[in-house]
Simulated scan of single mutants.
Amino acid sequence: MTQENGDRPTAALASRHLCTVEFEVGGGLIAIGASPFGEQRLGYVTGGRFFGPRINGIVLPGGGNWSRAGRLEGAASVGTFDARAVWQTDDGELIYLSYTGRSIIPDDVRATFADPAIPDADPSRYYLRIAPVFETASAKYGWLNGILAVGVGERTDFGVRHVIHEVL
């Protein structure tokens, strides 16, 4: 890095709320097991909805999240996401969504996730972040093809909820 580049101010990172999506994960998680690459699981998306200031609709069944889990030092698990879904807007347009992400969940919180009788854990006690991208043939929603988004997630009794922000 030259001195000239070092003196330039860095661009500020800004965002605005794009939407909130609630993924229904029917049937729970399918534990594929621990391979040499980590503990693999699949969560099948059975439906859901998304809503925001510029985009609203339903999550079509058939998507899923292929997650992989491992361990951090201490009493927490770490995970990665490889998720895909198709959204249908209220006006009938289709949007393909894919995302990666990370989670860090302390063992005591993970134990509550496994028992449906225990109320949902406070989202401030765990870390669930995603980086979605969108693809659509829709002229109306074509602006989605050019954005990167980030989201903060939380486990719910029906699956997962992500509050997604467009990075400006």
Rank of each mutant, 00 (worst) to 15 (best):
R71F: 06
E154A: 14
T80G: 10
R16Y: 04
V160T: 07
V109S: 04
A69W: 15
G70H: 11
L97R: 13
G79L: 06
V150D: 01
F50L: 08
G64A: 13
D82C: 14
D120F: 07
V59H: 01
I55N: 00
L29M: 13
G57P: 12
P9D: 06
R68L: 11
I130C: 15
F50K: 07
G6E: 09
I104Y: 00
Y44P: 08
G79A: 04
G27H: 12
D122F: 11
L148K: 11
A139M: 05
A83N: 04
P123R: 03
V133Y: 02
E135V: 13
S77A: 11
L148I: 04
P119Y: 01
D115M: 06
A117D: 09
A149Y: 04
G52K: 09
A117W: 00
G92R: 10
R8C: 00
A121G: 11
R161V: 04
A149T: 15
T20I: 09
R8N: 02
P61I: 06
F37D: 07
M1Q: 03
I118M: 12
I164V: 15
L128T: 08
D157M: 05
D157Y: 05
T112S: 08
G153W: 02
D7E: 06
I147K: 12
A83M: 08
R110P: 01
I147R: 13
L72I: 09
T20D: 06
G48S: 02
G33F: 05
K140H: 10
F50I: 08
S77Y: 03
H165C: 02
I130E: 01
D82G: 08
